[in-house]
Design a protein around this nucleic acid. Structure first.
Lengths: 241, 241
DNA sequence: AAAATAGTGTCTATGAGACACTATAGT
DNA sequence: ACTATAGTGTCTCATAGACACTATTTT
């Protein structure tokens, strides 16, 4: 169990769990949190849906493995990606002991996984059955509103993602990651409201955001709206994550 | 890389990294953050000090592995233990690719690892060279003030522990874990000040703690102090972690 | 002009910090 | 009585929420 003093211990001599990464790719669109799910065809898993994932290769950094999965299964590069938690219960995968290092990725809905229709996948909406940061599993629905069965502990993982987002939203530059490079304060507020699951005070939200120094005005205005156009903002230089 | 549809895939056929747990056992004593370190005798590691750790066994839950390590190497059971982060860079261990799921454990200094003097170990004090939640590695010193060389990425891990503690202290029941079951508000404030690395306002701290509902008065007073004794408090029932 | 949302100014409520004061143990 | 810290009351200041008002675009 404990490393010892032979010069090059052959770690592979010990039976060991496998290590995977799973990535929750999220976006906000039409007032809803959305996540990419892929089908699992294995008979043991009963046709359930799962987060994109894959095994961590020997001598591969788990962060790189997560980026590789995102590129291979969602066609995305250069998106915001952060480690969430590591799940390792021996019972979480019926096929064997797989420890999953989980990540969440945030992206503007316009860049969200543009997968060929030939690749089976679903952009599920998330329903959060708890308030604030209480925590717990969430429910995924397909675009027609049908509840989707999630493989492994992925409902719990997604619940923890939402909990983490709610906790970090206020003090970290997270909300911007779900928007295009230029956005209005109203769009940013809507993103915050969707993630937090509650309405926010407009005046106070504006003041907090402007005072935070995380964003700066561009001087440009939005176009083609049926009302007074709002100014476009961007992430300010020093707050680049 | 991706799981496929054979009924019982032999995961062990793929070369894979090993998985370990490392546990930062912390306490607060005499105005300082302290951590248990054990010596690494391997020639590759140059006699550096390290967090207690061990490999995760096949079909063992990583949480259980962390508890096992804590019991075996610090003689402690039933302490507060929480997962921190998973470090998996292939370069972090010169002997091979070891992914480390790291934990932190908090305990009252009177219960802190009572190891036999025959077991080589050191209770190091932590020096945090940054303010607030800026983050970064920390410096460990032995009781005589000498800087200790830390193995692997353990200086960075300890830095992340401190950062996490500072972030969670205000809204989670963490500070109590570093104190005996009954404590005065002044003791609790000192613990917060040591973790946060800055002084706190007494009046405001008292008000916040009492208003939080996390603690309740016991009616008892401390004894054998050279001044007016303070009331003893305990964690309130509903806030049990 | 009407509709709809952007954006501003001001009042109020709440909570943190500052400070002064009183209370009570041991010596 | 003296010392040191516990604990309380009150004032001030900063910030969030509420609300009223003005501004500016498209139709």
């Amino acid at each position: 169990m404990s490393p010892h003093s032979t010069r090059k211990p052959d770690f592979s001599a010990y039976p060991r769990p496998s290590v995977a990464v799973d990535v929750a790719l999220l976006t906000v669109h039409e007032g809803q949190l959305r996540v990419l799910l892929l089908p699992r065809e294995e008979p043991d898993l009963g046709g359930a849906w799962a987060l994109p994932g894959g095994f961590v290769r020997l001598d591969e950094d788990p962060d790189d493995a997560a980026r590789r999965v995102l590129a291979a299964k969602a066609g995305l590069e250069g998106v915001f990606l952060e480690q969430l938690y590591t799940f390792g219960s021996p019972e979480r995968d019926p096929r064997g002991h797989v420890i999953s290092i989980t990540y969440y990725a945030l992206v503007d809905h316009r860049r969200f996984a543009r997968l060929s229709p030939a690749v089976r996948h679903v952009v599920a909406t998330l329903e959060v059955p708890w308030e604030g940061e209480a925590g717990g599993p969430v429910i995924a629905r397909d675009p027609e509103g049908r509840v989707l069965s999630l493989a492994f502990d992925h409902a719990a993982i997604l619940g923890m993602v939402v909990k983490r987002l709610r906790g970090k939203l206020d003090y970290a530059a997270l909300g911007f990651q779900l928007l295009p490079r230029r956005f209005t304060l109203r769009e940013l507020q809507t993103v915050h409201e969707v993630v937090l699951g509650r309405e926010l005070n407009k005046d106070s939200f504006r003041r907090r955001m402007l005072a935070s120094g995380l964003i700066e005005p561009t001087g440009e205005l939005e176009r083609d709206v049926l009302h007074r156009p709002a100014e476009l903002y961007r992430i300010s230089r020093q707050s680049a994550v």
